[in-house]
Computed example of a mutant assay.
Amino acid sequence: MTERLIQSIERAADVLELFLTSHSEQSIKEISDRLKLSKSTVHGIIKTLEHRGYLEQNTENLKYKLGIKLFELGNYVGKHLDIGGIARPIIKDLVDELNETVHLVTLQRDELIYIDKVEGQSALTIYSHIGKRAPFHCTGVGKAILSQLSEEEVDRILSSSSLEAFTEYTMTNIEVIKSHLPAIREQGYAFDDEEIELGLKCVAAPIFNHQGKVIASISCAAPKMRLDEERLPKVIMGIKYAAAEISRQLGYKGKLQSN
């Protein structure tokens, strides 16, 4: 059975959504013409939305624009989206496809925290576990996030980190680490090539929220021998697609490289 929709609410939603796809400021006549509704109908909708704070009127040209109430609602939704719940089915699909371990980390007060880990059938005993902090300088997830931060943020994070050398391949010089970030930003993914554990290679990509801020990253970890030149492109594509899909479901509207 088709659900009964309330026409007045449908029209109010059409008015609000018009500002997302058309001009940021519009008059009652412009809205009326674009939605093919009578001026009296539009006037009533506009005045009601203005009264509740969803629209505001520009006193100079008398046109209307989106109001602060929508910003407040959007900000609330963004803060309360469950990234773990959103990401879990996407991660499970990726593990099914690649049969390798996939991690999800979040950025919390200049720290990386593992919040999810799904192991493939060929699981390894590796550094990570849920709730553990991840180093920025020698993990794919860390470098993927660093690549999306400002230079000031990167300097602050790295200068306050121990930059421990976990293996002979770990980069411990801040300037050397920073020199890799532009390429990571450009290509949309980062590597950890035996930098935290010998024999282990990871591919990671950043995750963005509805405000366009990097808040997390996702990675695939596997023995280096399994991420050879033949298989690596498939893993990179899978990680980038998963990161883009999680970002999209978090409300991110920017352009992401998903292939």
Score class of each variant (00 low, 15 high):
S150Q: 00
L37N: 09
S8T: 04
L94G: 00
S27H: 03
Q121T: 13
Y114I: 13
K201W: 08
S8H: 01
E153L: 04
H23L: 14
I45Q: 12
I174F: 13
L149F: 06
P89F: 02
N259R: 15
L163A: 03
S147T: 03
V42W: 00
K224H: 06
I130A: 10
E153G: 02
D96T: 09
A87F: 09
L62R: 11
R185F: 13
S150K: 01
E229P: 02
C138N: 12
E197D: 07
E151N: 15
I9T: 09
L98Y: 03
A123L: 09
H23I: 06
K117V: 14
D93P: 00
M1I: 13
L20H: 14
D155E: 15
R34L: 15
K65R: 12
G188T: 03
I91H: 06
E186L: 08
K36C: 12
A244H: 08
E197C: 05
G251P: 02
L20C: 12
V118T: 07
C220W: 12
S147N: 10
T125V: 14
R52E: 13
A134W: 07
M171R: 11
L5G: 02
P135H: 04
T125P: 10
A204M: 08
K39E: 15
F71D: 11
T59F: 07
S147K: 12
A87L: 03
L250F: 04
Q148R: 08
N58I: 02
I91F: 07
K143F: 01
Q148N: 09
S147C: 01
S147E: 08
R34A: 10
I174N: 03
V15M: 07
L66Y: 04
R52N: 10
Q211I: 04
A222L: 13
L124S: 05
S22T: 10
V102S: 00
T139R: 05
E152R: 10
E186N: 09
I215Q: 06
K65Q: 00
H180G: 05
L94D: 01
L20E: 05
R226Q: 15
E245V: 01
K36N: 10
